[in-house]
Simulated scan of single mutants.
Amino acid sequence: MSEKIKILIVEDEMIIAANISLQLNELGYEVTGIVPRGEEALMHIKSETPDILLLDINLKGSLDGIETALEMQKTHDIPVIYLTANADEAHFNRAKETHPYAFVAKPFKKLDLQRAIELTVSQVGFKNENNSNSKTKEDEAFILNDCIFVRHLNSMVKVNIKDILYIEAERNYCRIFTSNKEYLLVMTLKEMDKKLPSKPFLRVHRSYIINISQITEIATTHIVIGRKAIPISKPLKKELLKRLQTI
């Protein structure tokens, strides 16, 4: 039997939080905790990492839900589902920067919550990936020291490491970008990060791995590669600057 999906509820209205917890238990998920503040959520994640973060946008305290997600993403790659009673444009645009997997508008029905979680689980894969999918991933790419062979149409195509600009996560897939082509792989970004040679590559965001040698600009909150602005956090920016000194 596969393990239950673990969900942390971050909601400052405790009656709503308790009701969500009850619904999640009925749906077969495991609730790792209910916390009312973003700061408490970050502490909880350090001790017991959930599979999904169910996060109210309008939290009281020093961190709202979006700020909590941004802080979490500096150290963890946990899918976020936002709960919100305020779906205005400003909140939505801020929330998009954290790449959430779903929004659930309050007041919501049990089915709304269930569908949002099921969509997230299907996108991420978690512990329920079947063996045939793993086999496909082996067939999709062979990663060597200086090149990657990727499946393109009905053949395996050689992509030189030095020609890769960046790699972007796309649900359970990742997309390799070169200056003139892109390739879609059935492989998560996390798996790709483990297999890639470490010298030219650095994961600078939950959704991006970059080729350091292809950087054309380093700004305060992002870097530019091939006209693409890629977000980067302060800790990873420090790591990037260290790595640039060794090239």
Rank of each mutant, 00 (worst) to 15 (best):
M1N: 04
S2N: 11
K4G: 03
N19A: 11
S21H: 07
L22S: 12
Q23E: 09
N25T: 12
T32Y: 07
A41H: 06
K46L: 10
S47C: 04
T49E: 15
I52M: 10
I52L: 09
L53W: 08
L53N: 05
L55C: 09
S62L: 08
G65A: 03
E71Y: 11
P79H: 01
V80P: 01
I81R: 01
Y82P: 01
A85F: 03
A95S: 09
K96M: 15
E97C: 08
Y101W: 09
I117C: 05
S122Y: 04
Q123M: 14
V124A: 04
K127Q: 13
N128I: 09
S132W: 02
T136P: 00
F142H: 13
F142Q: 11
F149T: 04
V150I: 06
L153E: 15
L153P: 00
N154C: 11
K158H: 02
L165N: 10
Y173V: 06
E182Y: 11
V186Q: 10
K190Q: 15
L196M: 10
P197L: 00
S198P: 01
P200I: 00
T216V: 11
A219F: 10
V224R: 09
I232Q: 02
S233Y: 12
L240T: 03
Q245I: 08
Q245R: 15
I247P: 02
